Amino acid sequence: MKKDDCFYLGKIVKKYSFKGELLAKLDTDEPDLYDNLDAIFIDLRGNLVPFFIESSQLHKSNLLRLKFEDVNSEADADALIKTELYLPLDLLPKLEGEKFYFHEVIGFKIKDKNFGDVGIIKAINDSTAQALFEIDRNGIEILIPMNDEFITKVDRENKVIEVNTPEGLIELYIE
């Protein structure tokens, strides 16, 4: 299994017990969707390795308490702390309407209500306080905040996101 075929679910943050149980912080708005998993992929030195889950349950709001098969001691558990968890893309719930996963809109066209065709989404920058569409317009990079008020329509069939940005925002990059 390759990372390109998976989505990031979260990270193991600490041990829960001396019997090898671990707590994982999930990167999701709906942690209860991942409460009854059979297996999960763990990134070990750049390789995704499947781990089978003996038991799991939600712990507090966004932590998942995990007990893996063959992880039975504190030493086994220590080796997994700070590792990242992944699941195959086909386990992602389908989103409706204007909601989307970042990876699914790469390659979509951006159309602005006032400006017209802006360009193609080449990446999503979520390292800033406000996530940004990184758009390629014939070699010019244009950044548009991924603000719910700006996004007016997500057309999955035609791979187009329609936006209504403040006047002059796009022109800042072109002139």
Results as ranks from 00 to 15, higher is better:
Phe18Cys: 14
Phe68Pro: 01
Ile170Lys: 02
Lys159Trp: 06
Tyr86Gly: 08
Asn147Leu: 00
Leu87Glu: 13
Glu149Thr: 14
Lys14Asn: 11
Gln130Asn: 10
Pro88Phe: 12
His59Asp: 10
Arg65Ala: 02
Asp117Asn: 02
Leu91Glu: 06
Gly10Phe: 05
Val13Pro: 03
Ile40Tyr: 12
Ile140Gly: 11
Glu167Ser: 13
Lys94Met: 05
Asp136Gln: 13
Phe41Lys: 01
Val49Cys: 08
Tyr8Glu: 02
Tyr16Met: 15
Val71Pro: 00
Leu23Ile: 04
Leu9Lys: 08
Leu89Lys: 11
Glu104Lys: 08
Pro88Asp: 07
Asp70Trp: 07
Glu171Cys: 03
Ala39His: 12
Ala79Asn: 06
Pro166Tyr: 03
Leu92His: 03
Leu37Ile: 05
Leu80Ser: 02
Thr152Asp: 07
Leu44Gln: 07
Leu91Thr: 00
Val105His: 05
Val163Thr: 10
Glu175Lys: 14
Asn125Leu: 11
Arg156Gly: 12
Pro166Ser: 03
Lys82Glu: 06
Arg45Thr: 12
Ala77Ile: 01
Pro166Ile: 01
Asn164Arg: 11
Asn47Gln: 08
Asn36Lys: 14
Gly97Pro: 00
Ile81Thr: 07
Ile106Asp: 04
Val105Phe: 04
Ala131Arg: 02
Arg45Ser: 15
Arg45Lys: 15
Lys15Met: 15
Asn125Ala: 11
Met146Lys: 10
Lys113Met: 13
Pro93Gln: 05
Ala75Ser: 05
Asp78Lys: 02
Glu84Lys: 09
Leu23Ala: 08
Asp43Met: 04
Val49Leu: 05
Ser55Phe: 03
Asn147Pro: 00
Asn114Thr: 02
Lys11Thr: 01
Asn158Phe: 14
Lys159Gln: 15
Leu132Ile: 09
Val49Gln: 09
Ala123Asp: 08
Leu48Arg: 08
Met146Thr: 11
Asp35Cys: 11
Met146Trp: 00
Leu143His: 10
Asp35Tyr: 07
Ala24Tyr: 05
Ala123Thr: 01
Asp90Met: 05
Leu58Tyr: 04
Gly10Trp: 11
Val118Trp: 01
Ser56Lys: 07
Ile140Trp: 01
Leu132Pro: 14
Ile110Met: 13
Glu149Asn: 15
Glu167Trp: 00
Ala79Thr: 00
Arg65Thr: 00
Ile110Ala: 11
Leu169Phe: 12
Leu23Val: 01
Asp78His: 09
Asp32Trp: 15
Met1Asp: 01
Ile135Gln: 10
Asp4Gly: 05
Ile140Glu: 00
Leu143Trp: 05
Ile170Asn: 09
